[in-house]
Computed example of a mutant assay.
Amino acid sequence: MAGAVESLGGKPHVLYVRFQRGTGSGALGEDVYQGLLALLGELTPVVEALPPDAAFADVRGALRYFGRDAAGLAGIVRVRALARYGVDCTVGVAANPMLARMAAQDASPDTPGAVRTVPDEPGAVAAFLARKPPTALPGVGPATARTLCAYGLDSAARIADAPLGTLQRILGAATARTVHAWARGIDPAPVTPNAPTRAMGAEHRFRHDELDPVRRRRALLTLADGLGVRLRTSGQTAAVLVLTVRYADRSTTTRSRTLAEPTAHTPLLTAAAYALHDALGLQRARVRSVALRLEGLRDAELAAHQLTFDPADEKSRRLEAAADRARARFGPSAARPAGFLDVA
């Protein structure tokens, strides 16, 4: 089995697992993802779903039972995921969720699957974080990173060494305390067991790291159109839209928006996706992929719709219904947005 296990000692106990199909195999289906979460549940009940393709697992209570360290349990996860679902995974192993996620993101993109461990030792944690850019820290988006870099704080090590008072003047008190702790490898957040909400999602991976915001918006239009069709075909609406942007350095930014009303109307989904994207201020950001996820799904018959006297809205919905009929009769390519991109 391809992949590598890297460990320098210590006793970490948090796994960040990102499930991956082979190149060109498409995104995980909802049923497969649920099965993979159940697979993690065979090792520990403390599993936090991170749709559409990842999860945290706290295996502290499973170490003695299985007689293995956390990296060994990560190896079991890989073997079972491959055997049952044909899905490999990259696993980060560390003493807290932040470090585990970063360890997984640090794995080579050329390796189909790997287990990478950050030992629970101050020196090892500092060495692991030393040259990481600010965007590698969770919650630090491009705008915050630009602000930090403008003051010469262009790595986790420099942020960790900066006086807290200086960071507070740059970022504000609350944000500065959080970012300063992250830069030193401190993340008090526990793994919180949860169940994923009824949801559906789609991802567009660019052939090359994408700098053009117009092409990113075209990808979002394509994803929103496809999700809207899936909602209407299955007789559902969505209450929440989630945007995930993955960058060239394998860091991610995730933002969500609760829609004004549960909907399956593509223009509303597209507008929400554009608003989330534009709010990130991704100037010169090298984007590897964008993904949209719809949460809070419910039967369309149970969803309330605010009536409007806007003739443009009524016309848009009639055109959408006609396009759906054309797709049903002649195939999905019968009606597409003008800015449609082929989804990888």
Results as ranks from 00 to 15, higher is better:
14 V>D: 15
206 F>K: 08
168 Q>A: 15
101 R>H: 12
23 T>F: 12
162 A>C: 15
107 A>L: 04
223 L>T: 04
230 R>Y: 08
187 D>S: 05
171 L>V: 11
51 P>K: 06
30 E>N: 14
64 R>T: 11
265 H>L: 13
73 L>Q: 02
9 G>R: 05
211 L>N: 02
188 P>T: 08
280 L>E: 15
66 F>R: 14
5 V>R: 13
319 L>Y: 05
326 A>H: 04
287 V>Q: 01
109 P>C: 06
3 G>T: 05
105 Q>A: 15
180 H>V: 04
268 L>R: 15
278 D>C: 09
251 S>A: 15
142 P>F: 07
181 A>E: 09
185 G>K: 05
299 D>C: 00
124 A>W: 03
249 D>N: 13
343 V>K: 07
231 L>R: 10
170 I>A: 03
118 V>W: 07
283 Q>K: 13
285 A>L: 04
148 L>I: 06
145 A>I: 04
26 G>F: 12
243 L>M: 11
186 I>H: 11
10 G>R: 10
190 P>D: 11
77 V>L: 06
10 G>H: 09
242 V>L: 12
168 Q>T: 08
73 L>F: 08
288 R>K: 15
297 L>N: 02
124 A>G: 09
328 A>S: 10
278 D>L: 14
308 T>K: 08
169 R>E: 11
192 T>F: 06
256 S>K: 13
289 S>Y: 01
331 G>Y: 04
44 T>P: 00
173 A>N: 00
338 A>M: 10
331 G>Q: 11
65 Y>C: 00
219 A>I: 06
278 D>A: 15
171 L>Y: 11
69 D>V: 04
231 L>N: 00
44 T>H: 04
231 L>G: 02
48 E>Q: 15
100 A>E: 11
